[in-house]
């Protein structure tokens, strides 16, 4: 795949309210940089993430989607991220099965104290998706620029 130097991917990050959203806030508080093309959507828990949202993001032009939640065992709702983990594993495997680049989807557990991990994860994810280039396989053509 050709690497486009000027390409900046659109990344949607779903963050659970209790851990990862707070972790993202912390990376801001500590002034840890990550690319501006990462946009965060706050959800109460990682288990709120409906696969429909991920597909919708891709359909509307996202190049990568990442879900961040509390570490397994630390869920504010005790069990939410365990369900999310199964759902996402199966969904990602299915996307891969359909030939969609598996690197465009990711789950990362980020606690409220892991501001540095949040920034590092985002940097790394943006790098990965930038290398993959524009998401052509999933985008809704009506929205093509």
């Amino acid at each position: 795949m050709q690497v486009n130097e000027t390409f900046t991917p659109t990344i949607v990050a779903f963050c659970c309210n209790w851990c990862s959203y707070a972790g993202a806030d912390l990376s801001g508080t500590n002034r840890l940089n990550y690319p501006a093309n990462v946009k965060i959507i706050r959800i109460p828990c990682s288990c709120r993430l409906n696969p429909m949202f991920i597909l919708r993001a891709f359909q509307r032009g996202a190049d990568g989607v990442i879900l961040c939640g509390c570490h397994p065992g630390d869920c504010h709702y005790t069990t939410g991220n365990y369900y999310a983990r199964r759902r996402m594993t199966l969904l990602f495997s299915m996307l891969d099965f359909l030939g969609i680049e598996k690197e465009r989807t990711r789950v990362e557990w980020v606690s409220a104290a892991e501001g540095a991990k949040f920034a590092a994860t985002m940097n790394e994810f943006v790098d990965t998706v930038t290398k993959l280039g524009k998401n052509k396989r999933l985008e809704d053509l009506r929205c093509a620029k």
Binding site: Y83, R86, T89, F92, D96, V107
Partner: peptide, 20 residues
């Protein structure tokens, strides 16, 4: 299984590790 879990389920990254 999708309405169930165990605390030591595999991580979603299993999809990258084991490929397709």
């Amino acid at each position: 299984p999708l309405m169930n879990f165990t605390t030591d389920d595999c991580e979603p990254s299993v999809v990258y590790e084991r490929g397709g």
